[in-house]
Structures are given as structure tokens and as C-alpha cells.
Nucleic acid binder design. Structure first.
Length: 501
RNA sequence: GGGCCGUUAACUCAGUCGGUAGAGUAUCUGCCUUUUAAGCAGAGAGUCGCUGGUUCGAGCCCAGCACGGCCCA
């Protein structure tokens, strides 16, 4: 019995010990979560000051107040070195009993790696020349109950990294860098479009009819309105309504939701840039896209050529353009004779293990073949043009070939990155295309468009000749950060609830 | 949906032939006022993902399940 009681009281676990320590500090009257420390300088400010005028600072110089998380502690008997990090970097500080006093040093000895602290004092150089903050004042700003992962190996388990991204961010500098870069990429895109007189807008994320793409939507229900709503799969039809309304250049950078599989390339919610420009054509968009990518790459990486997963990709110059059918022939190695022969195409598809359903019209068969035979080979930026009408329900028909549309898709590193076209602005043609999509859906294509009568009515008021494009931001960020998985560029990727812990 | 791999201490990982559960870091105690993954001496720390099966005996073998990673569809 006595043993059992001892066992129950035994606090062997690291976290239990820390909780005990925290309670002991609290009982001593130590403020564990104060909110009155004023920061005067970031770590970067301090380092910049040192670089700017090292001769004017030193142990007798002006003090800096800085705060951050303790990432390392080297304790000696009556003094200690710590490293703490704020959003701008890592700095060493030197804590001496004779500087911060008996009580202060006793408190410091009770603290742990991972605690947040505030420090105030001048900087000096250690024996090895490292600039170090000499703490005159040391204050606990937040006590951490749980220990950080190990300092040398850090946090590696991908499941834990995604589920507890905050730990990933604390421990892994390269992860922080990816998300800083992501923010800069989006800012560079925004700057690029604003410079060209575009207006940034926000359109509904919840839509009564999900449109603008071919994808399975998430469905929800609005109680007060008593109606089904769908999380948007694209903002397209709303952005074009705005062009009708006279906003001739609009863009939106926001989330789309698609109720499909999760993989290294797909997250159920992902970020898309869509932009629309009146009196422009899909050809103008290809030019704009090239310029945008070159500008963003240089703004973010300093170069217009990048390295992605061991491949070198060059954004400079004019990118290759090739039609869908030519690409199947030249890049996919498909015999010319087969391209216009439905039976032969179906045979080839079946040979390649491509699943073709009854609902698939010939244009769909061709794009499915393209996905397998050509797309993986498009490493350098390549515009594919000449998409069939039946897979492009919102695109303007080509003047020279009514079976084709004025549309392109951009491929880089074997993946679709962008999709743009001259917008279909003939309301009669649009209505017929919707009807064909409805027929496709009834024939068994779950991704076919719904009829959107309200959109057709909007078109009847007159959409100027317009070109519009969507760019997958996550995939662009992957390219520019050399990330193999989309989860590495989304802060909180979707996962199933963990079965344990 | 299928295939392969993984899940062991807070973290990173070992664990042989099925026979008492290991290391480093972290933590705790002691020493230490210029360290750099500090050092020295000592100590504590485990639902081996979960459930069942085989066995005298399972971290290890078998089955199912959960979660994750990669690949394929």
C-alpha cells in the first residue's frame, strides 16, 4: 500500500516535473505570465546597431530591451549564457548573478529552455568575438509547461510537424523561411497587379451554385435562409460579374475548396489567384504571366531561374507555346493518324491504363491522354493552347476553329500551374455550354458544371471582351521554395484527427 | 481505393535468434563567472500506436484496426 501511494505521488514525467516547478514558482509569488515588459529593440535592431557603429557600444553603452524564447542555456555556477530568439533572429545573452542579483539569479536557475524572457542591458563581445547582451535586468515573461524538442535533431516527425506547426516553426528555421517566402510571393503578386491598375476584391466563399471550375464541392446549409450553400470551387463567375459592372481589371487571392483526395499535390482548401482584364485576350495573359513569374521569382529568390527538386527551371525569356494536339504528337509521341480517330484514341487510353467513362466526350479523352503522356514531361514553363470546347465551358471559341477555344494552361515542373482564357461573353453560347454540361452531369460526370441562369442573365447585360486567369498559389510557392509536398507550404494542412494521445 | 514503409522516454533514434527496455539530447541533484550541441559526477524517466492471436514467454511472429509518409489510381 505504501508503495502504491509513493508511486502515485511520484512525478517522474518531464511535464509533471515542470508543472510542479511552475506551481512552486507561483507559490513563491513569481509572476509567471506578466504583461508589462517593454521591448525597445528586436534582435535584428541590435545586430544592425552593432554593425553600424561597433565603437560606440560596449558594456558601458546604452542598454537594449529585447524579448524572445530561450532556445539554449549554458549554465555555470554564478553565470550563464542563453540564446533567445525573436521574430528577427537569435541572440546570445549573458546572465550574471552579480548583475541581476541573488533573487533574480535564483529565479533564472529555475527556468527552462522554451520559456519566454525579457532582457535589458548593453552588448559586449565574448572571448570568441560573439556580440552578447549583458543582462542588467532579466524577467520571465511566460513559463512553458512543456519542453521543446531536442536542440540538435529538432522536430522531424512529419505528422507532429503538421499537427503542431507551432513547434515546427519554433524548431525549424527552414520552415519559418518557407512561410516568410510565401507571404513575400503573395505580396509581390499583389504589387505586380496593383501596378497594372488592378483592383483587389473579395467575392463569396459560400455560393448557391458552385461554378467556375469542374470539381466536387463541399455542401453546407444556411439555417436562416433555409438554403443549401456550397463552398466555392472558384471565384470566376463572380469576378466576371464585376467586370460586367465596370471593374475592368480585378483580382482576388483567396481560398478555394474542392471535395477531393488529399495528396502531396492537393489540399481540400487551397489558395488561388484569379485575375480578369477587360479588352485583353488569352495571348495578352500569357505575356502578363511570364512577366509576373519573372518579377516574383526575382523579388523572392533574386534570380529568374530556380532549382526545383534537382531540376533547373528558367523563367526568363519567352516561354514555349504549343497546341494540345501538337504536344501529344511531339512530346507525348502519339501517332498523328490516331489523334482524329476516336476508336484509336480510346484504344491508346486503355493501353495506357487511363480510365475513360461513357460521359467522356472526345475532348476529355484527349486531355486525359495529355495528363499522362505530356504533362509530366513539361519541366520548363510551357503554355499549352488549343483546348477543345467540351472541356472549356467558360472559354471563348477560337475564330479559326469553332471546336477549339482561346485558352491556355501553363505547366512547370510537370504540373499545371495556371489556366487562362479569353472569356466567353456570348450569353447564348454560354447557355448552350451550360446545358451541355448539365447533360454531361446526367451522363455521369460528377464534375460537370451546374446551370447558372443568374450568370447567363448577367452576361446578357454585356461582358466586355475580357481575358481571365487562375494561378495556383500553393503550387507556385512549392516551386519557389523547392517544396516536394503542398503540406510544406500550407501552415495547417488538413489531416484526420489523430487516433492517439 | 491499392502497394510499400513507419509508429519504442519530452525529442532524435537503436533494439541481434522470441527470454529483465537501450543511447544521445532534454529533465533532476551536486560542482563550475566567457560558453558555442559547454564540461565533470550522480539520478530519475516507458500503456514499445490500439485490439486480438500464436507461445512457457511477444517491442520482435500472425491478423485486424488507427494515424502518418512515399508511390500508384
Amino acid at each position: 500500500m505504501g508503495y502504491r501511494v509513493m508511486d502515485m505521488n511520484k512525478k517522474s514525467d518531464v511535464i509533471e516535473k515542470r508543472r510542479d516547478k511552475l506551481e512552486a514558482l507561483r507559490e513563491k509569488g513569481v509572476q509567471l505570465f506578466p504583461n508589462d515588459f517593454k521591448v525597445s529593440h528586436t534582435v535584428k535592431d541590435i545586430k544592425d546597431t552593432i554593425d553600424g557603429s561597433p565603437e560606440t557600444i560596449g558594456v558601458d553603452g546604452a542598454p537594449f530591451s529585447a524579448a524572445g524564447r530561450m532556445m539554449a542555456i549554458n549554465r555555470f555556477g554564478k553565470s550563464s549564457f542563453i540564446r533567445f530568439r525573436d521574430r528577427t533572429g537569435l541572440l546570445q545573452a549573458y546572465i550574471r548573478k552579480d548583475k541581476i542579483g541573488e533573487d533574480g539569479y535564483a529565479l533564472f536557475k529555475q527556468l527552462d529552455i522554451g520559456d519566454l524572457v525579457g532582457l535589458r542591458g548593453p552588448v559586449f563581445q565574448t572571448k570568441t568575438g560573439e556580440w552578447t547582451l549583458l543582462a542588467d535586468e532579466f524577467k520571465l515573461l511566460c513559463k512553458a509547461v512543456r519542453p521543446l524538442p531536442e536542440k540538435f535533431h529538432g522536430l522531424k516527425d512529419p505528422e507532429k510537424r503538421y499537427r503542431q506547426r507551432y513547434l515546427d516553426l519554433i524548431m525549424n528555421q527552414d520552415v519559418r523561411d518557407i512561410f516568410i517566402k510565401r507571404s513575400r510571393i503573395i505580396q509581390a503578386i499583389r504589387d505586380f497587379l496593383l501596378d497594372r491598375d488592378y483592383l483587389e476584391v473579395e467575392t463569396p466563399m459560400m455560393q448557391p451554385i458552385p461554378g467556375g471550375a469542374e470539381a466536387a464541392p463541399f455542401k453546407t446549409f444556411h439555417k436562416a435562409l433555409g438554403m443549401d450553400l456550397f463552398l466555392r470551387i472558384a471565384p470566376e463567375l463572380y469576378l466576371k460579374r464585376l467586370v460586367i459592372g465596370g471593374f475592368e481589371r480585378v483580382f482576388e487571392i483567396n481560398r478555394n475548396f474542392r471535395n477531393e483526395g488529399v495528396s502531396t499535390q492537393h489540399n481540400p482548401e487551397f489558395t488561388m489567384l484569379e485575375f480578369y482584364e477587360a479588352y485583353a485576350t488569352y495571348r495578352d495573359l500569357m505575356q502578363i504571366t511570364q512577366e509576373m513569374f519573372q518579377e516574383v521569382a526575382i523579388a523572392v529568390t533574386g534570380s529568374s531561374s530556380i532549382h526545383y527538386q534537382g531540376q533547373s527551371i528558367d523563367f526568363s525569356g519567352n516561354w514555349r507555346q504549343i497546341s494540345l494536339l501538337d504536344s501529344l504528337q511531339e512530346i507525348g509521341g502519339v501517332d498523328t493518324g490516331i489523334l482524329y480517330n476516336r476508336g484509336a484514341l480510346l484504344e491508346l487510353a486503355s493501353l495506357k491504363g487511363i480510365e475513360i467513362t461513357k460521359a467522356d466526350r472526345i475532348g476529355k479523352v484527349i486531355t486525359k491522354l495529355f495528363d499522362v503522356l505530356v504533362e509530366p514531361k513539361l519541366i520548363q514553363p510551357t503554355f499549352i493552347t488549343g483546348y477543345p470546347v467540351e472541356v472549356s465551358p467558360l472559354s471563348k471559341r477560337s475564330d479559326t476553329d469553332k471546336a477549339l477555344t482561346e485558352r491556355f494552361e501553363l505547366f512547370i515542373a510537370g504540373r499545371e500551374i495556371a489556366n487562362g482564357f479569353s472569356e466567353l461573353n456570348d450569353p447564348c453560347d454560354q447557355k448552350e455550354r451550360f446545358l451541355q454540361q448539365v447533360a454531361d452531369r446526367e451522363a455521369g460526370d460528377p464534375e460537370a458544371h451546374f446551370m447558372d441562369q443568374d450568370y447567363v442573365e448577367a452576361l446578357e447585360y454585356g461582358l466586355p471582351p475580357t481575358a481571365g486567369e487562375g494561378i495556383g498559389i500553393d503550387r507556385l510557392v512549392m516551386l519557389l521554395t523547392d517544396a516536394a509536398s503542398i503540406r510544406e507550404v500550407i501552415l495547417f494542412p488538413h489531416m484526420k484527427p489523430s487516433g492517439k494521445k
